Simulated scan of single mutants.
Amino acid sequence: MPCGNNWILLFGILAAQGIYILAMYVPMTQSVLHVTPVSLEEWGTLLFLASTILITVEIFKVVKRRSV
């Protein structure tokens, strides 16, 4: 697992993302926070960018372990 055994960090990330998504799609919070929902295309772009960072970090960790 990329996040290792840090379940508190994983829970915090998922909770923060959940709150953010909730704020985008609940009409009352949309008007209070002045946010609009993200389109499916934008979600795809965000997922792609986040994946490239995750893959790069994991490759770096493998290379670093092998060089030590």
Rank of each mutant, 00 (worst) to 15 (best):
I55M: 04
W43H: 15
S31M: 08
L22P: 08
V35W: 05
I13R: 01
P2W: 08
T29I: 03
V32Q: 03
R66N: 06
Q17H: 08
W7S: 13
G18L: 02
G4K: 02
W7D: 15
M1K: 03
L47V: 14
S51Q: 11
L40M: 15
L40H: 11
S31L: 08
A23I: 11
T52R: 04
L22K: 11
I21T: 14
F11W: 09
I59C: 01
V57L: 09
E42S: 12
L40N: 14
C3A: 13
I53T: 03
N5L: 08
K64D: 14
A50E: 02
P27L: 03
L14D: 03
S51L: 10
G4F: 00
I21A: 13
L10G: 01
T36P: 01
S51E: 10
G44R: 03
R66C: 03
L46M: 15
M24Q: 12
E42F: 10
P2K: 05
M28I: 13
R65E: 06
L22G: 14
I55D: 01
N5V: 06
V38M: 13
V26I: 12
P2R: 06
T36G: 11
W7A: 12
V62L: 09
Q17T: 12
I53K: 00
L10R: 04
T56Y: 00
W43E: 14
G12C: 10
V63E: 04
C3H: 10
E41P: 05
F60T: 09
N5D: 13
T29C: 01
E41H: 11
V63Q: 05
M24R: 10
A16I: 12
E41D: 15
V32A: 10
T36Q: 15
S39N: 07
G4L: 03
Q17F: 14
L22E: 09
L54P: 00
A50I: 06
A16Q: 06
G12E: 10
V26L: 11
Y25C: 07
V68P: 05
T29Q: 07
V63G: 01
P27W: 00
L9N: 02
L10I: 12
G4P: 04
I13C: 07
Y25I: 13
V38E: 14
S39I: 00
S31R: 12
L54N: 04
F11P: 06
V35I: 15
L10Y: 07
Q30N: 07
V68L: 03
Y20L: 12
L10N: 04
Q30R: 12
V26R: 04
R66W: 01
F48C: 04
V38P: 03
Y25P: 02
S39A: 06
L33D: 08
S31F: 06
A15D: 09
V26M: 08
L9A: 09
V26C: 06
I55C: 02
S51H: 06
I8P: 02
F60W: 10
W7L: 13
C3N: 09
L33Q: 05
Y20G: 08
L33N: 07
N6Y: 07
T29A: 02
L46Y: 07
T45C: 10
L40P: 08
G44I: 01
Y20I: 13
A50K: 00
R66K: 07
I19M: 12
H34V: 15
W43T: 05
S31Q: 14
S67D: 06
G18Y: 04
N6A: 10
I13H: 02
T36L: 14
Q30F: 01
L10W: 06
T45Y: 12
L9F: 10
L9S: 05
L22C: 12
G44P: 02
